[in-house]
Design a protein around this nucleic acid. Structure first.
Length: 1066
RNA sequence: GGGCCCGUGGCUCAGCCUGGUCAGAGCGCCCGCCUGAUAAGCGGGAGGUCCGGGGUUCGAAGCCCCGCGGGCCCA
């Protein structure tokens, strides 16, 4: 049986705590999962958040979307895989641990605490953050397998990475290469393209013009521009564009006349900037300059340059490159193949050496500035060039410069040996597979994605660090390599291990070997330094591990199979892979969405997910990013604590379309909460009466219930709602779903349906009319709660438990099936008619308001004037509702006779007839109606003819005085203002009823308590009231109404000139 | 320089996919109503060149093209 609601008011905090406890006590989550164990598979793959410490609103939004989808699919009957994941390796954690331990460099890690301890700390840190974040997700009501998350640091996961890399190697997609890459001198590691994306920050750097003397020509120079003076020691060439025009410019300097070579288009700008006057004396194409030799300006300081000059044909010469632009600089590009990506490429073409006299920490390894950090050397180099007379101009520039994404150190370009996944070779395959197999939400993201893939290069996966998947590459002293695909394989191939610098030979037998390994190294742990100890033998040659670890983006890239422990466990993979759905923020389009496809095409020749959705960022109310420095961060805990989980969740899916940025607004959240509050009030109202009446829908035969039009209407509406919500979720247009629910609850259910049936609920006894209303409300909840359960799981559960569970028997709302629309009950004609009724009521109320007739006073008649057949039918069929809501004795469709008042249109007549206007006006005043009826006519006045039309008239309708009118879409409503004595008496009775009711409430009387009413008032009121005494008695549960001295609880009501007293009858 | 998204009353946003219901909601402002959902609820009013300009169409906030402004991604 339905009980009196436990909370009279909607208090999300209390309610949600109660439901949390309920779920926990009943193990509801596991039961929900178990109930769908035999359903079709649905592999939802959680994009693993990085274990940075605490979740923010963006992470919360992400998981809220995921949870809603998971709950929805579960209700649809799918057996949903819902394992959460965590990204736990990588530089960010290393940096945090270094900070915590006060370590400054990589050397500190190796010598001060040792790699094994460092790894242990990283692991602790990661696991600890995982715990914290798990609690935060749980707090949001996210139903995932929190006891069994996938963790990128588990042996099975790492092994999955090894398997993938081995596949790549077997296919020839894993290669070592010398490349110029971003390098972080603090972290002492290379960084990949995608790690630098978005890490460009404005920074001040030197901006210098330097002249390189042309060999063998007096006073002739190549003018170059650079913002990295520190790369000049590694300069090996000057690049010009073959097709551009270049100019020899005669300039006047302090040293006298000189000739500078500059791109023609830039001559003016450059001369201006360096403050020198000059004139062009010769012009030629860039390719003419090819081979021109110059004197390296730091040859004495860097003796190695002298060797290059002797050994390499193209060293210190002008070379050609298409990458040269005329956007800035001089059109002649200082080229250092060891320190620039394009420099490197063009250098390869001309056979130049890759010279990079800089160590891992960014210090020169030789020459004049040996041991100096390169950025510190900038001013010294500038000063030195000045002394030597090569500096033309030194200034500063503010430009965007890449920084390390974790430690914010400015990066340098540096050539190093790195390991690559040759994604460029499978790019076409990725795009093809993606086109054929993946559905994108919204669709246009795919275009963005394809562009991203098209533009991406090979993937540098090696990092010179510790906390990551160890690169499973072993190599001989002369560089032959072997990639190990599993721990088992590693043990099989191992011949020795190195323990504390000592070599320990291993026995032949596998199990024996394992025993020795465990004894010396401890239990299996595929991290460094454990795996570094292994010495393997392949084809008779001993090999040792390459010390690098793998880029952390590779970790998450393999999640779709690594989280299934593939290949150690093949069963899950075969059952589930590929993933059915993933959803992440827009930053992941070129990151996780891509890294997954790249890794998967390499490993399995196909893409690892079938549907992918993208959401935006969470911004603050003004549209700014939330950041510590702006102090505008809002924590999810704060939101939950202040407003509750359900409002938060619904709000995040309601505020804006998911793919756009969400401006978080407390006001918006309050609006959603208000909607839930309205829902709650509807529930409290219904449940209260139902419980009083011991309502039991299972004992009723719906086919025998006398349903009214409004009942059929709301059932039709709620069935339509199913379609809207479902379509909204399926197409990822989530606002379509949430706004449909919002609108239904507020407009259809609360503002209209409940308003219409309230009186039916007050009837006592087993009134069939009341039962029909109860039954309808109950049916509406049966559908609505299912639709809302994925969005607001707590309130849906609470209401379900009381209203539905006693009759449906199912333990939780989350175990119910997603509803199917019942086409039979959808009646579009009725919905249209009801829509008109609502409009007529609105228009009528508006008219009343203008006439200042309170709703409490009945009106004699309301006339609806319309040509629309649907409106006519509506007024006929739904007449009772109209009378009731408009408090009218009669509502009819009729044509209202009205008088037309025809006057001259002065604005038209005046300008047109000027001096004759008065004449025309006089005529119209008299004969306007003739003109109106004729439409147009020629009128002869005082010998002149005037052509007049209706345009010369203003036509006003004059209603009989007792009407007030208001338009609505579809017609016009007329309210008859005539107030008869009877109507007045009825209105006054209502006035008194309302006041007596309020007094009852002030006394906190029970609905069933009886009272005696005493009224002191004017004779006129007394007379009017006497006509409706029975009505007043009935409404106020009064046994008696006495005119005379007010007694008991007395209140004076000046608005009705009365004193009323009430006394409870014991 | 290229790609994608967004641009609707003072503010935050729906509607656009699938062209036709005075262009909607909430907040804020003003004025009321209702009261057995009650420290809630409801109505009305003021307020809009639907970024601008072309085009398609009987009809465009919506579709197409150009431009302007903002955001993101890439170079």
């Amino acid at each position: 049986m339905i009980k009196e609601p436990e909370f009279r008011e909607y208090n999300p905090g209390k309610l949600e705590e109660k439901i949390e406890a309920f779920w926990k006590e009943n193990d509801t989550y596991e039961k929900v999962k178990a109930s769908r164990a035999n359903g079709p598979k649905y592999y939802f793959l959680d994009g693993p958040p990085y274990v940075s410490g605490a979740i923010h609103l963006g992470t919360a939004w992400n998981k809220i979307i995921k949870d809603m989808i998971i709950r929805f699919r579960t209700m649809q009957g799918y057996n949903v895989r819902r394992q959460p994941g965590f990204d736990m390796h990588g530089l960010p954690i290393e940096v945090k641990v270094e900070q915590a331990l006060g370590l400054k460099t990589k050397k500190d890690i190796e010598t001060e605490i040792g790699v094994d301890n460092f790894i242990k700390k990283c692991k602790e840190f990661a696991l600890n953050n995982l715990k914290v974040m798990t609690e935060q997700f749980k707090m949001l009501g996210i139903w995932m397998d929190w006891d069994n998350p996938y963790m990128t640091i588990k042996n099975e996961y790492i092994e999955s990475g090894w398997f993938t890399l081995k596949r790549a190697w077997e296919k020839g997609l894993l290669e070592k290469d010398k490349r110029v890459l971003h390098w972080c001198p603090r972290c002492e590691t290379a960084l990949a393209e995608h790690e630098v994306r978005g890490e460009y920050k404005v920074r001040k750097d030197p901006s210098i013009y330097v002249k390189f003397p042309v060999e063998g020509r007096e006073n002739e120079y190549l003018l170059i521009w650079t913002t990295t003076p520190w790369t000049l020691p590694a300069n090996l060439a000057v690049t010009v564009h073959p097709e551009y025009d270049y100019a020899k410019v005669k300039v006047e300097t302090e040293n006298g006349e000189e000739y500078w070579i500059i791109a023609k288009a830039l001559v003016e700008r450059v001369l201006n900037e360096v403050g020198v006057k000059g004139e062009v004396v010769e012009e030629f194409k860039g390719k003419k300059l090819e081979g021109l030799r110059y004197v390296h300006v730091l040859m004495d300081e860097y003796p190695r340059q002298r060797e290059f000059r002797e050994k390499y044909e193209w060293a210190h010469r002008v070379i050609l490159g298409e990458h040269v632009t005329l956007e800035d600089g001089t059109g002649l590009v200082h080229t250092a193949p060891g320190h620039g990506e394009e420099d490197f490429e063009v250098g390869q073409k001309y056979g130049l050496p890759v010279y990079s006299p800089v160590d891992d920490q960014g210090r020169y390894t030789e020459g004049r500035w040996k041991g100096v950090y390169v950025k510190d050397a900038d001013p010294e180099i500038i000063e030195h060039l000045k002394e030597k007379g090569y500096l033309v101009k030194a200034g500063t520039i503010e430009h965007k410069y890449p920084h390390c994404w974790r430690c914010k150190t400015p990066l340098i370009f540096r050539a190093t040996d790195q390991w690559f996944l040759k994604v460029s070779k499978v790019k076409d395959k990725i795009i093809k597979e993606n086109d054929e197999k993946v559905t994108w939400y919204p669709e246009w993201v795919k275009v963005r994605y394809d562009n991203g893939v098209m533009n991406s290069g090979d993937w540098v996966i090696s990092r010179q660090r510790y906390w990551g998947i160890p690169l499973p590459i072993w190599q001989t002293e002369n560089g032959e390599i072997y990639v190990v695909g599993s721990f088992k394989e590693l043990v099989e191939l191992a011949v020795a291990i190195e323990v504390d610098g000592e070599r320990v030979e291993l026995p032949e037998d596998y199990n024996e070997k394992l025993r020795v390994i465990e004894e010396k190294l401890g239990p299996e742990d595929l991290h460094r330094p454990y795996v570094d100890a292994f010495i393997i033998k392949v084809n008779g040659k001993e090999m040792r591990r390459v010390k690098d670890v793998v880029d952390v983006w590779f970790d998450s890239g393999i999640a779709s199979w690594a989280s299934l422990d593939y290949p150690r466990n093949k069963e899950l993979f075969e059952k589930l892979w590929p993933a059915d759905f993933i959803v992440e923020g827009e930053d992941q389009v070129t990151k996780w969405f891509y890294s997954q496809q790249a890794a998967s095409v390499i490993a399995f020749n196909t893409v690892p997910y079938r549907a992918v959705a993208m959401h935006g960022y969470v911004l603050d109310e003004k549209g700014d990013k939330m950041s510590k420095s702006l102090g505008n961060i809002i924590r999810p805990e704060e939101v939950v604590q202040k407003e509750g989980r359900d409002p938060f969740r619904f709000y995040m899916l309601w505020a804006t379309n998911p793919w756009e940025n969400l401006r978080f607004s407390w006001k918006g959240l309050a609006q959603v909460k208000r909607m839930l509050n309205i829902l709650w009030n509807v529930y409290v109202l219904s449940a209260t009466y139902m419980s009083l009446d011991n309502f039991d829908p299972t004992k009723l035969k719906p086919e025998e219930l006398p349903f009214r039009e409004e009942d059929r209407w709301i059932l039709s509406r709620v069935n339509g709602l199913i379609k809207d919500v479902e379509e909204g979720i399926e197409t990822f247009r989530l606002t379509k779903a949430t706004r449909a629910i919002y609108n239904f609850v507020v407009e259809d259910l609360s503002r209209w349906y409940i308003r219409l049936i309230r009186k039916r609920m007050w009837v006592e006894g087993d009134d069939p009319d009341k039962l029909a209303a109860y039954y309808t409300v109950w049916k509406v909840f049966d559908v609505l709660l299912r639709l809302m359960a994925p969005f607001t799981p707590y309130i849906a559960e609470e209401i379900y438990q009381n209203m539905l569970r006693p009759f449906l028997g199912v333990e939780s709302v989350h175990m119910l099936d997603w509803p199917k629309p019942d086409e039979e009950t959808i009646d579009e004609e009725l919905e249209r008619e009801m829509e008109y009724v609502r409009r007529i009521v609105e228009a009528g109320s508006s008219a009343r308001q203008r006439a200042k007739i309170k709703l409490r006073y009945p009106v004699r008649r309301i006339i609806v004037e319309t040509e629309d057949e649907t409106v006519k039918k509506a007024v006929e069929r739904l007449n009772r509702i109209l009378r009731d809501q408009l408090n009218a004795k009669e509502v009819v469709v009729e044509k209202v006779e009205r008088e037309l008042v025809i006057k001259p249109n002065f604005a038209k007549v005046g300008p047109e007839f000027k001096g004759d206007a008065k004449l025309v006006i006089a005529w119209i005043n008299e004969h306007g109606r003739e003109l109106y009826e004729a439409g147009e006519m020629d009128v002869k006045l005082e010998g002149k003819t005037f052509h007049l039309t209706r345009e010369h008239l203003t036509i006003e309708e004059k209603l009989p005085d007792f009407f007030v009118a208001e338009d609505f879409e579809g017609g016009r409503v007329f309210v008859d203002k005539t107030l008869t004595r009877e109507l007045l008496a009825e209105g006054l009775a209502r006035e008194f009823v309302r006041r007596i009711q309020e007094m009852r409430k002030r006394l906190d009387l029970d609905v069933n308590d009886r009272i005696v009413v005493t009224i002191e008032t004017t004779d006129e009121n007394r007379e009017l009231l006497s006509e409706n005494l029975d009505y007043i008695k009935k409404e106020t549960r009064a046994t008696e109404i006495i005119f005379g001295e007010a007694k008991g609880f007395v209140v004076e009501w000046p608005e009705v000139q009365a004193k009323i007293g009430i006394e409870k009858v014991e």
